[in-house]
């Protein structure tokens, strides 16, 4: 479970995240929508402990991210926006390296099965990542996350730059993970994918979570309308369902 309580991050006078309250339960996919600079990536970075919060609390499976940073990592998998793996290692070698660092080093057979399970073509598994497309690299990223068997997953705009087919494959993989009770927090620009994949949707603007709603309570066109209106209007208090 992922939790943020009264979470704020300031850089001088600039407020990147303002009093954020958020909870992602096991089996939830929480999609954070917002324009560039809305605070989505900062929120992910705070959960990852890449940066320290100015105030508030972040918890992963009830463990405090700031004071128990290393312990929280055991329960957390992460896929960044641009998953740049080691280009002169193969997909399998990258998987073995990162998963091994996470404490679950798969042997060649298990590693190959994991990569095949996320849809990576068999003939690409032992090719160097330098020749991979972004979609293929994202699949390796998913395999790394799955190999870790973590019960929380953080995704920072994982589908940006993916073609529709790859984006769809990616969404299917997330649904599979959701079925395995993984709590997923995903920052994205993709309204369609958020509506289609997410169980919950949040809209952020200027560091504030303006709306937080369940995805089955809103249609895609209504979500689009709400998003556009939010971007136009001044910030106001968040609606929490």
């Amino acid at each position: 479970m992922l939790e943020a309580k009264n979470l704020s991050k300031r850089y001088g006078d600039f407020v990147a995240v303002d009093d954020l309250n958020l909870q992602v339960n096991p089996g939830d996919i929480y999609c954070l929508l917002g324009a560039n600079g809305a605070g989505k990536t900062t929120t992910i970075n705070l959960f990852m402990n890449f940066i320290q919060p100015t105030s508030g609390q972040i918890k992963i499976n009830s463990l405090d991210v700031t004071s128990q940073a290393q312990a929280t990592k055991k329960h957390l998998a992460y896929i960044p926006e641009n998953l740049n793996l080691y280009s002169n290692l193969t997909g399998l070698e990258n998987l073995q390296f990162f998963a091994g660092l996470g404490g679950n080093l798969p042997d060649k057979v298990t590693g190959t099965q994991l990569l095949e399970a996320v849809g990576l073509q068999s003939d690409a598994i032992n090719k160097r990542v330098a020749k991979y497309s972004k979609g293929m690299r994202q699949k390796v990223g998913i395999a790394i996350a799955k190999a870790k068997q973590a019960d929380n997953l953080l995704l920072d705009e994982p589908t940006s730059g993916l073609d529709p087919q790859a984006s769809n494959d990616f969404a299917q993989l997330l649904k599979e993970m959701r079925e395995n009770n993984v709590a997923i927090l995903m920052a994205t620009h993709d309204l369609f994918r958020a509506k289609e994949t997410g169980t919950h949707i949040g809209i952020m603007k200027e560091g504030v979570l303006i709306h937080s709603l369940k995805s089955d309570e809103i249609k895609l066109n209504e979500l689009e309308q709400l998003y556009l209106e939010t971007m136009k209007t001044e910030n106001h208090v968040a609606i929490d369902h």
Partner: peptide
Amino acid sequence: GTLKLIHGQG
């Protein structure tokens, strides 16, 4: 960005 991924592994 691989440093983030490494750090993310704990």
